[in-house]
Amino acid sequence: MTQFTPPIFSKIIGTGSFLPNSAVSNDELAARLAQNNIETSDEWIRERTGIAQRHLASPEQNASDLAAHAARAALDMAGVSAEALDLIIVATSTPDMTFPSTACFLQAKIGADNAAAFDVMAVCSGFVYALATADAMVKAGQARTALVVGAEVFSRLLDWSDRKTCVLFGDGAGAVVLQASTEPGVLANRLHAKGSLSHILYAKGASQPEHAWDDPFLKMDGQAVFKQAVTALGDVAQEVLDDAGMTAEQIDWLIPHQANVRILQSTAKRLGVSMDKVITTVHLHGNTSAASVPLALDAAVRDGRIKKGQVILLQGVGGGFTWGANLVRF
């Protein structure tokens, strides 16, 4: 990797996103589940989660395919060619293969031959972790222009007979282009993990075939996850604000992990932030794990809500148990 003169800041200069295929509404999902004698309804799902629909990848679509669409959109907005990238980080818990990394597949698909490429796996906190990593590498002079992507085909991990989990998740990808800058961009990052809570949200993988084939699907203690998420998101938000010498009143937009509208509401209340300042897209795509934060970010950039110079608080929380935040001036 080429060594660059370390800049003062790194800055987001482009965003992109992609949702596969047509949306599957709650009513459509309920009809599918009814064929297996699983009872649910649009009312039941909306009341508990705020989700109205989700997108499901087709069998031939992998995480890198979704990532490529989001990456091209972000590069186009940034006015940057793939050849100009020095670094690609993909946050995913649903990689194309055990190895090579999904980032390497993405590099080949977009023609970013000059970029180092690797994956980050922190489940629903993955994008926040990846953005913090890319920011550190840009500031250290290890990269000048970086592509950070959250991409998931989480539907592959779902037990379609478990109503408590299968209604929650969807597939998608979101991306940002991060570039060295003399202007303030990423203002602060904080990352955390608590491995002793790994049992409240997990999925056994292919590296444990003696277990995976018996029970390969996502398992979640919903109440425990909710409790931990609200506490963790509130705490980490205050940490990055303190690091930047700012207060919650100075946030223009809050983008928490899009898991459940109740978590978004509770997080905003704990921070004293109006829901008018919370970017909410969970109703459109469900919980897309590492893709959820950049999906919401791109939606708000493209519809004009997020404007140049505004301060945005990004937050992730997920299996591990992991959580973190990025404070960004757009």
Rank of each mutant, 00 (worst) to 15 (best):
G304I: 08
V80H: 13
A175D: 08
G150V: 00
G304N: 07
L19N: 13
E152I: 00
I12S: 08
D243R: 10
V186T: 09
V176Q: 03
H211C: 01
L327A: 05
S101F: 04
L87H: 11
V176D: 00
L297D: 07
G309D: 03
N189M: 03
V293F: 05
F4E: 11
M1G: 11
V273W: 01
A116P: 07
L218F: 07
D86W: 03
D162V: 02
A206S: 08
H257L: 04
S155I: 02
S292E: 09
N62R: 12
D113R: 15
W323K: 04
A84P: 10
G14V: 07
E152T: 01
V186P: 11
M220T: 12
F169V: 06
L197V: 00
D298W: 10
V240M: 03
D243Y: 10
G319N: 14
H69C: 13
A248F: 08
G172Q: 15
A296D: 14
V301M: 12
A52C: 15
S17A: 07
L29N: 14
A34W: 15
A78Q: 10
L327V: 12
A296H: 01
K11S: 11
R144G: 05
A73N: 13
F217Q: 14
L157H: 15
T133D: 14
E249W: 05
D113T: 10
Q250P: 08
A130K: 00
Q179P: 01
K308G: 12
N114Q: 14
E43T: 12
L313Y: 08
K11E: 15
L201E: 03
G286E: 08
A237G: 14
G320R: 14
P294Q: 04
D42N: 06
A291T: 07
M246D: 07
A151E: 00
T322A: 05
A206G: 11
